[in-house]
């Protein structure tokens, strides 16, 4: 019984939250890694693209709610998602046209593009705050739980409750669908393959008649889509606050780099690695330990390795350790 309780507590406080957080990071890191693979720079504006997209989703959600459109037990934001993606993709494409394309034509050094993306970051940051403000916004109006802690306790007779929030379930499910679709796209479609070819060898791709502007445009659209989905899921799961999204840049970059920049598979692995270590290190293990250890050994403190304020330190430490042993990341950063 105690052992079962321990497993339930572990699921409840570590596995489920880390899985959904990992899925959010993975989606964010996929966008960063795609841009890196095709456009050859790390996009500092990615966090703010997530924020902008989520803000759009929130606005559309509010519009829907105000005219009485709901999505049954699911959050209305899911209905708004396609609109948010469309608006964000349009903005990102416009940015590419107005800003990035010039440098691409110049064959500018990638590091110049990094600085350019800082400028874009400032602007997007300002625009997002301008539109929706700096406050914290909750926009999840769906059913709260797939599995409710009290009902779980009643049904199983265990002391520990298992809570599985619908946003968590939704996050994991959406992430699986999106990742599957992305991999199918990259590996099976002509456009997807042309993106990989372009990332592999730009000149040869040109010689093969692949249109770089098209490749770049498709990449931006996909990255925008991933950013909005990741941002919306994160916002549904926790809450929306523009500054928090900017701060997600670090764990997202860390995920992409740990996995191997340019490798989509790596981005996913990196996202989950970072999420699990962050949650694992900042979770107070006392509860689980009390269940599995004999009374004499039970910890008297919280058995928390680090306070949650240091979760960035954890992602960073993982990054350094992985790079020390595998300098190109878990999955050798290469193909798109």
């Amino acid at each position: 019984m105690d052992f079962l309780n321990a497993i339930v507590a572990l699921l409840n406080f570590v596995v489920i939250p880390a899985t959904s957080y990992g899925a959010q990071l993975a989606l964010g890191a996929l966008g960063v890694t795609l841009i890196y693979g095709i456009l050859r720079f790390s996009n500092f504006a990615h966090g703010d693209t997530m924020a902008f997209g989520t803000a759009m989703v929130i606005l559309v959600t509010w519009a829907f709610q105000s005219v009485g459109i709901h999505f049954g037990p699911l959050p209305t934001a899911l209905l708004a998602l396609p609109f948010g993606i469309a608006i964000t993709a349009a903005l990102v494409l416009a940015t590419d046209k107005a800003v990035y394309r010039f440098y691409r034509r110049q064959k500018a050094a990638p590091v110049i593009l990094v600085i350019v993306s800082m400028g874009v970051m400032f602007i997007m940051n300002g625009v997002t705050r301008f539109i929706i403000g700096v406050g914290e916004i909750r926009f999840d109006d769906g059913g709260r739980f797939i599995v409710n802690a009290n009902e779980f306790k009643k049904a199983t007779g265990l002391a520990e409750g298992l809570a599985f929030r619908s946003t968590q379930g939704l996050t994991i499910l959406t992430a699986i669908i999106v990742v599957a679709a992305l991999f199918w796209f990259l590996n099976k479609t002509r456009t997807g393959k042309s993106m990989r070819a372009y990332s592999d060898n730009e000149d040869l791709a040109l010689l093969s008649g692949i249109n770089p502007e098209r490749v770049v445009a498709v990449t931006w659209i996909i990255a925008a889509g991933l950013a909005v989905i990741a941002g919306t899921l994160y916002g549904l799961d926790k809450s929306f606050k523009a500054f928090n999204y900017f701060q997600l840049l670090l764990p997202i970059f860390a995920s992409a780099i740990v996995g191997g920049l340019g490798s989509p598979l790596g981005a996913i692995a990196g996202g989950f690695l970072i999420a699990f270590t962050e949650v694992g290190f900042t979770y107070a293990w006392k509860k689980v330990a009390t269940y599995v250890l004999p009374d004499a050994l039970a910890p008297d403190g919280l058995a928390q390795l680090l306070s949650t304020d240091y979760k960035f330190a954890v992602s960073f430490a993982i990054l350094v350790i992985v790079l020390l042993f595998k300098p190109t990341g878990l999955f050798k950063g290469k193909a798109v």
Partner: peptide
């Protein structure tokens, strides 16, 4: 009127992009 405060981020981005370009 409340949002005017966020103009500064926007301006900084614009200045950076214009100079870089």
């Amino acid at each position: 009127q409340d949002s005017a405060a966020h103009m500064r981020l926007l301006t900084m981005g614009l200045v950076l992009l214009l100079v870089l370009r």
